[in-house]
Design a protein around this nucleic acid. Structure first.
Lengths: 187, 187
DNA sequence: ACCTGAACACCGTTCAAGT
DNA sequence: ACCTGAACACCGTTCAAGT
């Protein structure tokens, strides 16, 4: 049960964090969910900060894997750029969940530094992936690509946030289409 | 002290909410700050939900006033569109505060319905103002304008969220410039 | 009309104690 | 090695009580 308990805690904490944020990670609820006592969580994670950092680290690592799969399945860089928003869409499809990193960006003032570092890593992974796709597409200069990659990531994260507040997947799709029509996301 | 206490509570709660969210509105801290006891807040607001709704309502009303001033000072609709992001920039300048509505959009799952209604009103006010500016500029069809207004509002809110997580005003300016260069914000 | 103290169930955290 | 019970200071909320 040792490795299993640790994994079960991580899974439950991530699910809670995408719904309620870092501040909404509740040790008693998580413990109940996986059938241990809340004090037991401290055997696996030294503090809420440590648990939060572990959740955020695992989150960007999983996202990095997903992005690598999209890259592997889509040799055409333009297709990759079109596929990028699908990761954010999947969160909304999954019980209206928000990107963990967006939630934690909002909670910036209350986050321990070790958690913040992982939040920044998530953004970096996404921006690097987009930059590479733009480069493969032969789009713009190196500096232009970095700027545009940040703009795309930011706008898509914003679309997820706003669509969530209306529980409206169609609004998300519509915002992404608008970005594409406007030329923000090259197509 | 009666009207003053109510106003003082609203001001302190708004400040806290832009830094820590709805869940971070703390009755004991607010009471300390304005020199009353936490139980006294319930004389002015029947619950945390009622206080949160009052804060969010006041917030979109104040924003609506600010937007009207920008409109009054900028007869040129293109100038108005360029000025729009300045409201979100001011929040960041003010101790890295986030748009209350963005924070509450993240907290969607934990918000009482009466608070959510005010969050939606904030987005509506912003989108309506942008739609009007696009119309005055003779930009697109009525349907295009509504879609584009939503996209601009969403992307700017996203830029504020991401720039906040790096405490980086320059990043905010850079993202807005990218939006303009990409043509998302007509210039 | 406006405010307070004391109590409630709830949080993260600690720690000595169990197996 | 892994888990627990009991305690701590903290939260939103209630309510009877003060002026």
């Amino acid at each position: 049960m040792s490795e299993n308990a640790r994994e079960a805690i991580l899974t439950a904490a991530r699910s809670a964090a995408q719904l309620h944020g870092y501040s909404g990670i509740n040790f008693r609820s998580i413990a109940d969910e996986i059938g241990i006592k809340n004090a037991s969580i401290y055997y696996h994670f030294s503090s809420k900060a440590a648990l939060g950092a572990a959740v955020a680290r695992r989150y960007w690592q999983d996202t990095s894997t997903l992005l690598a799969e999209i890259r592997a399945h889509n040799p055409d860089p333009w297709q990759r750029l079109r596929a990028f928003p699908s990761i954010f869409r999947k969160s909304l499809e999954n019980a209206n969940r928000l990107c963990l990193s967006s939630f934690m960006a909002a909670e910036y003032e209350d986050l321990p530094e070790e958690v913040l570092a992982e939040v920044r890593a998530f953004a970096d992974v996404n921006v690097a992936w987009l930059t590479e796709a733009l480069a493969d597409a032969g789009w713009g200069s190196a500096q232009d690509r970095d700027r545009r990659a940040r703009a795309i990531y930011t706008a898509v994260a914003g679309a997820q946030l706003i669509a969530r507040s209306r529980t409206d997947l169609h609004l998300f799709d519509d915002l992404i289409s608008s970005y594409q029509e406007a030329g923000l996301i090259p197509a």
